[in-house]
Design a protein around this nucleic acid. Structure first.
Lengths: 145, 145
DNA sequence: TCTAGATTGACAATATATTGTCATATCATA
DNA sequence: TATGATATGACAATATATTGTCAATCTAGA
């Protein structure tokens, strides 16, 4: 039987693998709208937030560098998917919001993604879903320092 | 309460986040040996296999493209960490093995990683470890098509 | 045996991401 | 209020990764 540490190591390696696979899934699902996993995730961060976010805040919400988020936001702004909104609290750091067209595409994708998630989730039990989410969240918080 | 699909979606987003964090951890742990997460993972694929692997086989074991593996293997060969061994079954596709120096570094890192994994695993129960690994493995297999 | 299909190495183009730097803007506190 | 610390946008360098292509190699089936 594997030690606790050995199982954890196997989890880490499996996470690397599935992360790549999920990125490909997201690329394929969003491709027809001219999107990609990376751009879709940015839109998700914007839409799932209760308040308007700046570029660095989007990066922090996603657990990636502000520069990575900035690059993608700039491309999406050029493509008319997001727009910059003046931030009364900061002269430089504008708020980012979806454009009407961006929101339209996001809603379409979000609907498809929900169906996809429901389908995949049928392969797992409620306990597996809850415990796995809880465990990965613990990992996120543990390394978020 | 979230639907099964909604929980699955949260798992996916958490996986993206923790994957980035784990890559940074691996980069930091291996940095002093001139390595990175990407190179370390290649070494792991080589060492964890029972048989000698070719570059495309390393890629498939890691769930990434053969080109990505090829690039890193070539760099590591130049750095003296891995070497190419003639493959009697294929004129072009050579087998990849760690050099003595590569093995020395890998063993050092592997030991440190085991300690690290044991430490992090103390934050989780045995059930959490087992169920999470099992669930992510199911996801890996589901998307491995 | 022969041949069509798959695999491989090499090369290129492109997307995604971290890290580092600098000037500017904001914030906290003495 | 003044100032040192922190955050931000812009820019650059570099690492990591997918995708596509082509010729060489291998494999399986007729």
């Amino acid at each position: 039987m594997d030690s606790d540490g050995a199982v954890f190591t196997k989890i880490v390696l499996a996470i690397f693998k599935v992360s790549g696979a999920l990125n490909l899934e997201g690329d394929r699902m969003s491709e027809e709208f001219g999107l990609s996993s990376a751009r879709w995730k940015i839109m998700g961060a914007i839409e799932k937030s209760d308040v308007l976010l700046t570029v660095p805040e989007i990066g922090r919400a996603m657990g990636q560098s502000r520069q990575a988020s900035q690059r993608i936001v700039d491309v999406m702004a050029k493509d008319g998917l997001v727009k910059f909104i003046d931030n009364p609290n900061h002269k430089r750091a504008k708020h980012i919001a979806l454009t009407v067209e961006g929101k339209r595409i996001y809603d379409l994708l979000d609907h498809r993604q929900a169906l996809w998630a429901t389908e995949v989730a049928t392969k797992l039990t409620r306990d597996e879903l809850d415990i796995t989410y809880n465990t990965i969240q613990k990992m996120v918080k543990y390394f978020d320092k």
